[in-house]
Design a protein around this nucleic acid. Sequence first.
RNA 1: GCCCUGGUGGUGGAACUGGUAGACACGCAGGACUUAAAAUCCUGUUCGCCGCAACGCGAGUACGGGUUCGAUUCCCGUCUGGGGCACCA
Length: 920
Amino acid sequence: MEYNFRSIEKKWQDEWKKSGAYRVSNNSSRPKYYVLDMFPYPSGAGLHVGHPLGYIASDIVSRFKRLQGFNVLHPMGYDAFGLPAEQYALEHGVHPAKGTAQNINNFRKQLDNIGFCYDWEREVRTSDASYYKWTQWIFLQLFHSFYNRQLQKAVPIEQLTAAFEKEGNSNHPCPGDPKIVFTATDWKGYSEKEQQDILMHYRLAFCGYGEVNWCEALGTVLANDEVVNGVSERGGYPVVKKKLRQWYLRITEYADRLLSGLKTIEFSEAMQEMQSNWIGKSSGAEISFSLDGHTESLVVYTTRPDTIFGVDFMVVAPEHEIISRITSPEQQAVVDNYIEYVKSRSERERQAEKKISGCFTGAYAINPFNGRKIPVWISEYVLAGYGTGAIMAVPCGDERDFRFAQHFSIPITNIIGDAFDGTDANPTKDARLSNSDFLNDIPMREAIEIVIEKLENMGMGKRKVNYKMRDAAFSRQRYWGEPFPIVWKNGIAYPLSEKELPLLLPDVESYGPGPDGEGPLANLNDWKIVGDGIRETNTMPGYAGSSWYFLRYMDPQNDKEFCSRSASDYWNQVDLYIGGTEHAVGHLLYSRMWTKALYDLGHIGFDEPFRKLLNQGMIQGSSRFVYRKKGTQQFVSAGLAGSMETDKLHVDVNIVDGVELDIEAFKKWRNGEYAHAEFILEDGKYICGSEVEKMSKSKFNTVNPDSLVEKFGADTFRMYEMFLGPVDQSKPWDTKGIEGVHRFIKKLWRLFFDEEKGRLWNEENPTAPELKVLHRTIKKIEEDTERYSFNTAVSSFMICVNELSDLKCHKRAILEPLLILLTPYAPHVSEELWHALGNSNSVLDASFPKFDPATLVESEKEYPVSINGKMRTNITLALDASEEDVKAIVLANEVVQKWVEGKPLKKFIFIKGKMINVVI
RNA sequence: GCCCUGGUGGUGGAACUGGUAGACACGCAGGACUUAAAAUCCUGUUCGCCGCAACGCGAGUACGGGUUCGAUUCCCGUCUGGGGCACCA
């Protein structure tokens, strides 16, 4: 019998579908385990071999946990709203819903090919009204809540209005605008509009104003992605910053909990670091500097108040509103000019810029301690969104301030004595201060506190904890997203009631922008106008639906609640979450925040969504190039291309074998575009150039999993993806090696069947060496799967099958447990052979074999013996030998004596069971 | 620019807690079986040197230092690939 993977895989996929093998129940006496893949966006390009890497890993873990007796939830669905579908609609007039549905069907077919164990009855799509109804519902929960800092949790906004009526906002300082202060009497005297405006500054989901990339020519707001070097990707029109009304989520109120929560979950060190850097908690002081000749003062945030006597200038962000009030008439033109320049600059460009730019406002701040006049400058390296949008610059202690001072010839005050050499800033906290009045000779670290206290006593400043993280922009001027359940009347946002949900996304005639930078929905007057109100025409961003989808999987068909409490109590946190690091600070922070808010409001019983996170690496493409002689149709082989002028063109990797071009296929490629090409060969071959790049259609370096499954089968494909290397590392794809894995499965098959003789297995009792092979493999597979080292697990399977082949072992007692071990990795062939052995139940529900340490006990070991740390020989010794015995045997050894050359022994190192080192 | 991460044979990688560097594969070379091919099997394969060979010697985990009896592993510096940086998802 031959290994016919096509019929085997089809047979079992059909069978598993028929038997509902992957259906998961919310009622089970078994312990639960929840394995989740990051929500895919169903792109039109379809799957390439990079996508399934994480899916295969999670599939292996799911099946492994099932064999270990867990009730495993392993769902899949689609993050179906998003920009690409809308872009496609804009260009082709196809409704995004239609395009998205097609992409999903395609995606699903590709996934099914690989044999995943998803419970498809739990599939969700964020663009279905039955789903986004609950996204809107959660938005309303956030809208109706504020963050009570005393309780450190979200609570209903009614509790806030109750407090306002009793005591004003004295106990609840306003997070949106700290200048808002009022008494109970004030509150009661306010109009409804005034009250609502204040509440808006407290709500967890709130409306405010923020800057967007505005493209006047296209009449629309652009994503960062769509802006290249300050102009629109489409058309190349100028893009500037513009303030627009936007919805936000007040994630900053959760900054501290998002930070401390990291300690309770298993995210990699790197991931935790990225998140805490993003949150960017720092402590320091806000200091008010009065301005010479003005009544208002300039407030800066600094983490280093100890350097106050080293402040040689101030820098405010170009967006800072104070600029218009303090700029001197002489400087006005220069300032206007500079601000205009900055408007065209993206935040990233501003931070990455090495060139120093800025201008003087003409105004001077006053140092509160010595009255010194300090010039106030503007520069793009200070961002409006961080701190107060203004800094005090200390050039002797800060590199950027130093370079700025040098560039504009601003004199530098040295307050750290010898620690400053005049050529580089020194950011130390350990120097003793000088030139610093009452702080002289005090270590900087101690001075921080002294200055803060003094400022507070003087009323010139206060202690302040600051976060780099900003509130999350939560609206888009787009069509293909969730509509906001909000109606505006007289400038007040009125939420829809729960009964009115879902607010359906209406059809539009064109996907182009509405007036005044509004989204396409603004064009629909019939839809927009409700009585005397106007609907919110923004839609929610891509991350709205993906911030809570892991909850919906638990109870996907529920039309009464977003997820029943009993379901979320049973499944609880996601036990293992697998996805790429690109979501480190976006999705992974938003979904953590949503979870915390839902927890605070009593809707779920846990406040971290993902107990453990595993990051998968990116599979890169290995691109191939051909070299066309300039201005000709002659293609030159890579080795000869260097000597002449050529254009380097991407060529489809699928028509290249290794680096050798299939010339006939190339002539037919792209509808015969190169049919008349001529070739200059080396050794009769056309050799392509190669480079590792991101896998993408435009680079012709994508490899489609479908064709590999067709050629080698899903089991081979799954194992090869794992065999490629550690799941968490990036690596280039190379199809060549897949044959090795395919050979392994065929070799396994031959332990069961001979092509001519047929069945090979027998019922004999296994020998000790055979048991040793089996149990070493059980141990290795269990440990490796447990620590997600899938590549080494595949190696162990290979070693096991190689050794059993050498031992000519065809015994059921060995082979049957081996099949169970293999099931998570290669489920189809395992099930087929399992049934061949006469089992009538499914191998999916077998029990994972138990490792027996007794089979591996050794009595001796071949020790590596080093002389001065260099390995020189091996000596086999009893494992229970004493150190004296070992020493005597080793020193008497011929090889050892040769190397020792009679020199005196300095040290004898013996690590039992490991190694021996003779130091002379 | 800032944050994170990687760099080991011709290639993907292994070495899990500082203890035999290169497991397992791919590729390549040689051989067996075959009319031939496919498939399968066997042998060799880090580099350099000496040698018919066994074997022996030296170097070697991006580069330069350091700690240690011993470093791919720990520390410092440099170079370099990848990901992210708030409207791609």
